[in-house]
């Protein structure tokens, strides 16, 4: 129990803003992938099916994650004719967090901590 607390404290040693972003928005590996995709390709607008193709995933795997990211304000969801399309939010504050998160993932220690939080959140 004590050991778990110690690990928990070590793993919480992340910028509080990023930790919150991790816990509330990047709370699955599929979402991590999608946030990275939209962060690297910020002017993408497309359907879940096409985004799945770009991300090398099957559409069923990402449909729910896209919808959740839209609800959480990371993406915007729009109707275009009969299609539902997703793009990165234009909210500068969220865009800054996405950018900050992607920058942070270049650091191995951060990645380990982020994976820890995502797995804990999945339990």
């Amino acid at each position: 129990m004590e050991r778990e607390d110690l690990v928990g404290r070590l793993m919480a040693d992340i910028d509080p803003e990023l930790l919150e972003f991790l816990r509330t928005r990047v709370n699955s590996f599929v979402k991590w992938d999608l946030i990275r995709f939209f962060g690297e390709n910020p002017h993408t607008t497309d359907t879940a099916e096409n985004i799945a193709r770009y991300a090398g995933r099957n559409p069923e795997a990402i449909q729910a994650a896209l919808a959740e990211l839209a609800t959480q304000g990371v993406l915007t969801e729009n109707r275009l004719g009969e299609m539902t399309v997703y793009s990165l939010t234009s909210n500068p504050e969220v865009r800054r967090l996405v950018h900050q998160f992607l920058e942070a993932t270049n650091d191995r220690q951060f990645r380990i901590k982020a994976i820890y939080h995502i797995i804990r959140g999945m339990r």
């Binding site: 002017h43 993408t44 607008t45 497309d46 359907t47 096409n50 770009y54 275009l80 299609m83 793009s87």
Partner: peptide, 21 residues
Amino acid sequence: LRVVMTSPEVSFADLQAVEGQ
């Protein structure tokens, strides 16, 4: 400059829409 990644079906519908991207 803007590099926009999209698909033919989305860009086609987008261009037809009023106030599209």
